[in-house]
C-alpha cells in the first residue's frame, strides 16, 4: 500500500470511530454532561420556576444550605440510615455467605430466597412493608407481641420510623451483599486453607487469618457501594413516610426532591445536588484509590 492509501484508510477509521461513538455520546452529552455543568451553574442562582426570572446570588444557596436546620437534619437522617443499615447488613450477609460457600443441598433455593427482595420493585416492597408496619393489625407488631414485647407505632412515630426503614433496608440489600461476598470467597485460593490446616489451624483461626484478611477488598467494595446506594435512597421514603413524621425520615435526596419538585426552587435544589455529588465523589475516589477502577466493571 502506498502512504496515500494508508492515510485514506486512517481517515476512514477516524470517521467511523466518531460515527460509532456519536449515538451514545449525544445522549450522554444532553442528559449527563450538560446537566452536570448546568447543575453547577444553577447552584449559584436563585430561581423559583414560574415565579420570575433567575437571579445570580453567588454562594447564597450554599450559605443558606449550610445554615439551614432542615439540611442538617436531612444529613443526620442520611447518615443515621447508612449507619443503621450497613454494618448490620454486611455482618449478616457475611455469615450467610460463609454458610452458603460449601456444597449444600438446596443451595439454589436459598440463593433464590435471599436474593428475591433485591430484584423486586421497591415500590411494591414498600407497599408490603407499609402493611407489615401497620400500627394496629400489622405483622411486625404481631411478631413482637408473640415474644412478649409491646407494640411499636413504627412509621407513625419519629423515634421508630427510621429504625423501621433500616430493617427494610437490611432485608432488601442482603441478597446483593451475599452475592458479592460469595464471589469474594470463591476467589480465595483453596491451597491457602490446606496450608493453614497442615499448620494445625482450627476453624476460627482459618477464618481469622485466611478468610477475613483476603476478604478485605470485598468488604471494602460492599461498604462503599452500600454507602453510595444508601445516600441515594428515595423510593421507600416517598412511598412510606414522605419524609415524616416531623422530618424524621427526610434524607438528602428526599430533601432535594421537596425543594426542587415541590417548592420548585431549582437553584437551591441544585446546591443540594452538588453536596450529594461531592459526598459520593469522595467515596468513589477513595474506592478507586484503594481498589483500582477495574472492580467497577471487570
Amino acid at each position: 500500500m502506498t502512504t496515500r492509501q494508508i492515510k485514506k484508510r486512517e481517515l476512514k477509521d477516524w470517521l467511523q470511530g466518531y460515527a460509532f461513538l456519536a449515538p451514545s455520546f449525544i445522549f450522554l452529552a444532553v442528559f449527563t454532561y450538560f446537566p452536570v455543568l448546568y447543575a453547577f451553574v444553577l447552584s449559584f442562582w436563585r430561581w423559583r420556576v414560574m415565579r420570575g426570572e433567575p437571579t445570580f446570588i453567588g454562594l447564597g444557596n450554599y450559605e443558606f444550605l449550610f445554615t439551614s436546620e432542615d439540611f442538617w437534619q436531612a444529613m443526620w437522617n442520611t447518615f443515621y440510615f447508612a449507619g443503621g443499615s450497613i454494618p448490620t447488613g454486611m455482618a449478616i450477609a457475611l455469615v450467610i455467605a460463609l454458610m452458603l460457600n460449601r456444597p449444600l443441598r438446596g443451595l439454589a433455593i436459598y440463593r433464590t430466597a435471599y436474593f428475591l427482595p433485591t430484584i423486586t420493585s421497591l415500590v411494591a416492597v414498600s407497599v408490603v412493608w407499609l402493611w407489615i408496619y401497620h400500627p394496629d393489625v400489622g405483622l411486625a407488631n404481631y411478631l413482637l407481641n408473640l415474644v412478649g414485647l409491646p407494640s411499636v407505632r413504627w412509621l407513625n412515630e419519629p423515634r421508630s420510623a427510621m429504625p423501621a426503614l433500616i430493617i427494610l433496608g437490611i432485608w432488601r440489600g442482603l441478597g446483593y451483599n451475599v452475592i458479592i461476598y460469595l464471589a469474594g470467597l470463591q476467589n480465595i485460593p483453596q491451597h491457602l486453607y490446606e496450608a493453614a490446616k497442615i499448620d494445625g489451624a482450627n476453624r476460627w483461626q482459618l477464618f481469622r487469618h485466611v478468610t477475613w484478611p483476603l476478604l478485605t477488598p470485598t468488604s471494602f467494595f460492599i461498604l462503599i457501594i452500600a454507602v453510595i446506594n444508601s445516600f441515594q435512597s428515595f423510593t421507600q421514603i416517598h412511598v412510606m413516610t414522605q419524609g415524616g413524621p416531623i422530618g424524621s425520615t427526610t434524607v438528602i435526596v428526599y430533601y432535594l426532591y421537596q425543594q426542587a419538585f415541590q417548592q420548585f426552587t431549582m437553584g437551591y435544589g441544585s446546591a443540594i445536588a452538588m453536596v450529594l455529588f461531592a459526598m459520593i465523589l469522595v467515596l468513589t475516589i477513595i474506592q478507586m484509590k484503594v481498589l483500582g477502577p477495574r472492580v467497577h466493571y471487570q
Partner: peptide, 9 residues
Amino acid sequence: IPHQMTIIP
C-alpha cells in the same frame, strides 16, 4: 455521576 444530580437540569 449520581442520577439525582442530573434530574433538575
